[in-house]
Amino acid sequence: MTHLLAQLGAWGLNGMARLGRAHLLLLPLLRGLLSILRRPRLLLDQLYSVGVLTILIITVAGLFVGMVLGLQGYYILSRFGGETALGLMVAASLVRELGPVLTALLFAGRAGSALTAEIGLMKATEQLSGLEMMAVNPQHRVLAPRFFAGIISVPLLAALFSMLGVAGGWMVGGGLLGVDQGAFWNGMQEGIDFSDDVINGVIKSVVFGFVCTWIAIFQGYDCVPTSEGVSRATTRTVVHSSLAVLGLDFVLTAMMFG
């Protein structure tokens, strides 16, 4: 019994210490903004590997999610004779919820895990120590560009996701099921409010981008520098990011639309 309590305590203390280290890392990351401003090239390279390489999965996922939304929405709405609201339904659910949330989840799986593994391996192979001894701060040179690339990429990817989702919904609703085109787009235009829906969606995706990239970078930087440590850190990145995104989504939604 006491053994169990002690283990629980140790687990809690470890978690707290890790949370503290994660917050301590934020300061150098933000300070790294200075070196990025001096050398934008560092950020551009990371925007490519963190953002551009994630476009494919976002494109495919966005289209399919939109198509499913179109189908499901049509079956439910047609029961009440409300097919004309299909455009609004698809767009609202994408812009408010599915776009930011699913993008963040996919980002954590595709880019977040890669970031953790890359940084973790750089630590395990002493590349980060090597940088320190060359008087180059790895927090500024390696971590910060990846961090800001993630924060910039996620909102853009979420916008792409929502856009393609709407296109997918329209393909199914307008093309396959014969919903009136004018009504589809009109309902969307009238029902979606720029500041209520679009801006709030963007705020969500910025927050998710921040949290997912932060978790990924911290897990890589803080991992035990062995193969097992790196693999554990990668798993933790995906699990923690997903849970954080879903939990934060509830909090943000309650604050914005509640």
Binding site: M122, T125, E126, Q127, S129, G130, L131, M133
Partner: peptide
Amino acid sequence: FQSGALLT
């Protein structure tokens, strides 16, 4: 460094 620590 013992391992070289080159940037891969």
